[in-house]
Each structure stands twice: as C-alpha cells, then as structure tokens.
C-alpha cells in the first residue's frame, strides 16, 4: 500500500464509524417514530382496552356507566409464621423487645 493511502487510513476508519453511528441513530429514530405512529393509529381505532359497558345502572342524576366483567375471585394472601416478636415497632420498643435506636438508621452519603 502506498504511503498517502496509509496516512488516510485512520480518517477513513473514523468516517466509516461515523456513518455507521449516524445510520444507527437514524434507525432508532425511525423505530420510535414508527412505534408512535402505530400507537396513535391503534388509539384512533380502539381507544379502550377494557370491555364495553354491559349494564346501565341509571344512578340518580349522575349517569354512571358501569362495566360488568367476568367474575374474578380475589386471591387470598397466605399468612406466614413470623420470626419476629408480635406487634408493631412502637409496641416492641415499649415492650423492650426492640431497641429504640432502630428508628435512627444512619443514612448513606449522597453519591
């Protein structure tokens, strides 16, 4: 390879990387614009994602449309045996089973 071409090599490399980055940014911008377009189109045609109302309750003067949805049983949270003494922190501090110093947690220095 002749000398002038060799000297040009780093500049060609920078040019190549720059073009690649610009293309990538352009691609991201296009992707975002496309996503947004899809969202707006979807909103225009189907603005609601919850089922349409099936029951009109005619509540006094205030017209409230209430959606009636398939019944979903509320989940039950399972109780677990606690390893801690019973009661809130204040109760345990008063009972002497928790040190009052627990309420004075040292704070980290801001980063």
């Amino acid at each position: 390879m002749n000398k002038p071409l060799l000297l040009l090599q780093p500049f060609l490399l920078i040019l190549f990387i720059g073009t690649l980055t610009a293309c990538q940014n352009h691609h991201i911008q296009n992707y975002i614009a496309d996503q947004n377009k899809q969202y707006l189109a979807a909103q225009a045609t189907a603005p609601l994602t919850i089922p349409a109302p099936l029951k009109d309750t005619s509540l006094s003067d205030q017209q409230v449309i209430i959606p009636v949805l398939p019944n979903t049983n509320n989940p039950v949270v399972t109780a677990e045996p606690s390893l801690l003494p019973p009661g809130s922190m204040t109760a345990r501090i008063n009972a002497g089973t928790l040190s009052p110093s627990i309420l004075k947690t040292p704070l980290p220095d801001p980063k």
Binding site: N74, P75, V76, V77, T78, A79, E80, S82, L84, P86, G87, S88, M89, L98, I102, T105
Partner: peptide, 15 residues
C-alpha cells in the same frame, strides 16, 4: 429492605 425485615407484615384483610 433491612427496615422492612424488622416489621411484622400480616396477610391483608383486603387484597
């Protein structure tokens, strides 16, 4: 998390 670990959390009466 340390603070949450020293308090009793019960099963909620309402989810």
């Amino acid at each position: 998390e340390d603070a949450l670990n020293i308090i009793n959390i019960q099963a909620p009466q309402i989810p």
